[in-house]
Amino acid sequence: MSDVNMQPTQPEGIIQMDGVHKWYGQFHVLKDINMNVQQGERIVLCGPSGSGKSTTIRCLNRLEEHQQGRILVDGTELTHDLKQIEAVRREVGMVFQHFNLFPHLTVLQNCTLSPMWVRKTPRREAEEMAMHYLERVRIPEQAHKFPGQLSGGQQQRVAIARALCMQPKIMLFDEPTSALDPEMVKEVLDTMIGLAEDGMTMLCVTHEMGFARTVANRVIFMDRGEIVEEAEPNKFFSNPENERTQLFLSQILH
């Protein structure tokens, strides 16, 4: 906790979480989460399973509702107001553990659906943009296939392209490589590294510590619904302060 409190007062970030609490029934899943993310920052959230890291980033586009505290994304507060929620969701892309591509639509249609129906982008333009991002994730040749015809790694790259087609300011990754076969993890991570190099604001829940070392500005360690430690990757991995962090790192780094 010490790190959080010792930080100097920062200018208002693109994401601000102030004293956020969340309960599932009786279960207190998020306890007083405070987080301030600046534009262009890359944050990695890690921690044991059930620590609330996925729930935290799912609160940022209101897939989960918080019950106490304030969340501001790009200056818009997340409340019950649907207009505000939709405004935030337009600016925040998300990539899921299980890809969640739309199986009844082709890869190209997956990418153009939201730009056309939400942003009112003309079809031609939406398709050009989709092809641009599909090239960027290096699978333009699969554009007219259906998701069921692709491998896991390819599907996840399509999911990244689909989120990018909305030209979001922030990208959330919820364990993007956990459901992939080992040999496909790299292709997805490479795509994410490329994205980071272009200055995208990213929040990643991941167990890929190599990725955290190379890409993250900050690593946030969560346990039992609390932010336990928050530090630069070098300091985080070489000299963790908290006991729980030390235990966690000893378990995952062999």
Partner: peptide, 27 residues
């Protein structure tokens, strides 16, 4: 239709009605 489909559509900014019409009902 798995709940992930709804979440994916919502995360792309599609409102509830369009999510039902374009994503859920066809599947």
């Amino acid at each position: 239709v798995s709940h992930g489909q709804t979440e994916a559509a919502h995360s792309l900014g599609l409102p509830a009605g369009k999510t039902l019409r374009l994503v859920i009902i066809p599947q």
